[in-house]
Structure formats: structure tokens, C-alpha cells
Amino acid sequence: EDPKKEILLAMLMVDKEKKGYVMASDLRSKLTSLGEKLTHKEVDDLFREADIEPNGKVKYDEFIHKITL
């Protein structure tokens, strides 16, 4: 499956209130437990690539855009 789609799906599952962003810690939890599970190192690399703080907010569109360039 398309990794971009899988990450967006994980974000939507976490963002039940439809705020347009999720906490990095919640996204990490989903990405390491769903679908093609990522390792913590892979998530760290994704966050670093997208300039996301480990305890920060992750906005869908910015995150998807940064990791798919």
C-alpha cells in the first residue's frame, strides 16, 4: 500500500476530533503498531526529515508534503 496513504490513515485514526493535527507521540504509537509497522528508528528518521519535535504537533498536510518531496 502507498506509504503516504498509510500515514494519513494513521493520522486520521488518532485525530478523532478532526483538528488537522496530531501529537507526535500519538502518531509514533500508530505508525509502530499498524499496517507495515515502522521501527522507532524509522519514525525518528521521518520526524527528523519533516522537522517534527518528538513531543510536538504534527499537521497532516505539512507532514505529508515534507516526507514526500
Rank of each mutant, 00 (worst) to 15 (best):
I64N: 06
K59A: 07
L27K: 01
F47D: 00
K5I: 10
L12G: 13
L69N: 13
D44N: 03
L34N: 11
I64Y: 06
P3E: 01
K18E: 13
A24G: 06
L9G: 14
S25G: 07
K41I: 01
F63C: 04
V22C: 10
K4Y: 13
E49W: 14
Y60D: 01
L12E: 15
M23A: 14
H40W: 04
A10C: 02
H65N: 08
D15A: 14
E42W: 06
K37H: 09
M13A: 15
V58Q: 00
E6V: 02
E17A: 05
S25P: 09
E17Q: 10
L34S: 12
F47K: 03
E17Y: 06
V22K: 02
K18I: 01
K66I: 00
P54D: 10
E42F: 06
K18H: 08
K66H: 12
K37A: 12
V43G: 01
V22D: 04
T32E: 11
L34T: 11
D45E: 14
F47A: 02
G35L: 08
M11G: 12
L12Y: 07
E17F: 04
L8P: 09
D45M: 06
P54Q: 07
D44H: 00
E42L: 02
K19N: 13
F47C: 01
V14R: 15
K16E: 09
G56T: 12
E53P: 14
T32M: 12
D44Q: 03
F47N: 05
M13Y: 04
A24M: 05
V14K: 15
G56E: 10
K19V: 04
A10P: 09
K66V: 01
E49Q: 10
M23K: 15
E42N: 02
T32G: 09
D61N: 04
M13E: 15
T39I: 02
V58L: 07
K37F: 14
S25K: 13
L46H: 00
K66E: 05
M13T: 14
K59W: 08
L12H: 13
L31S: 05
D45Q: 11
P3F: 14
D26F: 00
H65F: 00
G20C: 01
N55W: 05
Y21L: 10
D45R: 09
S33F: 05
F63E: 06
T68C: 13
E17N: 13
K5L: 13
S33L: 07
K16R: 10
I7W: 10
D2Q: 06
K57R: 12
M11L: 10
T39G: 12
L38M: 14
H40T: 09
E53F: 01
I7R: 15
L69G: 15
E53Y: 04
I7P: 12
A50E: 12
R48P: 00
G35Q: 11
D51P: 02
A24D: 00
M13Q: 15
Y21V: 12
K66F: 12
V14T: 10
K5P: 05
S29F: 03
L46M: 09
L38I: 03
G35C: 12
K37L: 09
M11N: 11
V43D: 05
K4C: 08
K16M: 08
L27N: 00
E53H: 10
K16I: 02
S25M: 01
T32S: 06
M23L: 12
I67H: 08
L69P: 15
I7L: 15
D51A: 11
D61W: 01
M13D: 15
I52V: 10
K16P: 09
D61R: 08
G35I: 05
D2S: 09
A24Q: 05
V58Y: 15
D51G: 15
V14W: 07
K16G: 03
P54N: 09
A10H: 11
D2F: 14
E17S: 09
D51R: 11
P54T: 05
P54K: 08
D45Y: 00
H65M: 00
D45S: 07
R28T: 01
K41R: 10
S33G: 10
D45C: 04
R28A: 04
P54C: 04
Y60T: 07
G56R: 04
K4E: 10
K19Y: 07
G20E: 14
E1D: 03
L38E: 01
D61L: 08
E6T: 08
V22E: 04
K19G: 09
L27S: 01
V22Q: 03
L34Y: 12
T39Y: 00
I67Q: 09
V43W: 04
E6H: 08
K57G: 02
R28S: 01
E53K: 12
K66D: 00
T32I: 08
F47L: 10
L46G: 02
D61V: 06
I52Y: 03
V43E: 02
H65C: 02
K5D: 04
P54G: 09
I64M: 09
K59H: 05
D15Q: 09
M23V: 06
K59F: 09
P54E: 13
E6Y: 02
M11S: 13
E49P: 01
S29R: 14
G56Q: 12
P3H: 12
S25Q: 15
K41S: 13
E36W: 15
S25W: 00
D26P: 00
E53Q: 11
H40R: 08
L34A: 11
P54S: 08
P3M: 14
E49S: 05
D51K: 11
D45V: 01
D15Y: 07
M11E: 14
G35Y: 07
K4M: 13
D2W: 03
E6N: 12
N55L: 03
D44F: 00
L9A: 14
K16Q: 09
V14N: 14
D44A: 04
